[in-house]
């Protein structure tokens, strides 16, 4: 990660005011470098463990009948959720659909969307689960 000049200037001023009378060019340089290092380390840690995206995995299944895909996708569209990927299988009488959706453009949070979708699930007599992508990433990717 690269810091902008503006950020480095700010760090330098902070260090200067902290050091006060004890400030020498060498000391300032040393402290600023240290601070930049720790900021970068901190930021890297943040990206690793971050809930980085608004990506949510939607899984739905139940007895197959017409209108399931339409019902689910309409509800998602109404809530401004972006469908990034979709995969669907029919096993015997059972219908299974998995979607990767992005909820970052929706004005609702995950909990509210889950509530909306559980209404649809009840109407269509299917199960719908929405889980943040991270849980799949942690369990299935090293």
């Amino acid at each position: 990660m690269n810091l902008t000049e503006e950020e480095i200037r700010k760090i330098t001023f902070d260090v200067l005011s902290e050091l006060g009378d004890k400030a020498t060019p060498e000391k300032v340089k040393e402290f600023v470098n240290k601070r930049i290092e720790s900021t970068e380390g901190g930021d890297i840690k943040l990206t690793l463990g971050d809930v980085s995206s608004g990506r949510v995995i939607l899984t739905s299944f139940g007895l197959n009948h017409p209108g399931i895909v339409a019902g689910v996708t309409k509800a998602l569209g109404d809530n401004n959720c972006d469908i990034l990927d979709l995969s669907q299988k029919i096993l015997g009488d059972f219908f299974t659909m998995i979607m990767v959706i992005d909820i970052s453009s929706s004005d609702k949070d995950l909990k509210e969307i889950q509530d909306e979708m559980s209404k649809i699930a009840l109407e269509m007599k299917i199960k719908i689960y929405l889980q943040h992508e991270d849980v799949f990433r942690f369990m299935h990717r090293i």
Binding site: T59, S87, T96, I98, Y129, E133, F136, H140
Partner: peptide, 16 residues
């Protein structure tokens, strides 16, 4: 799809 169908169903099966 960034995850396999089976992987996702495995997680759902575990939790549900």
């Amino acid at each position: 799809m960034p995850y396999e169908f089976e992987e996702i169903l495995e997680t759902i099966r575990m939790t549900e």
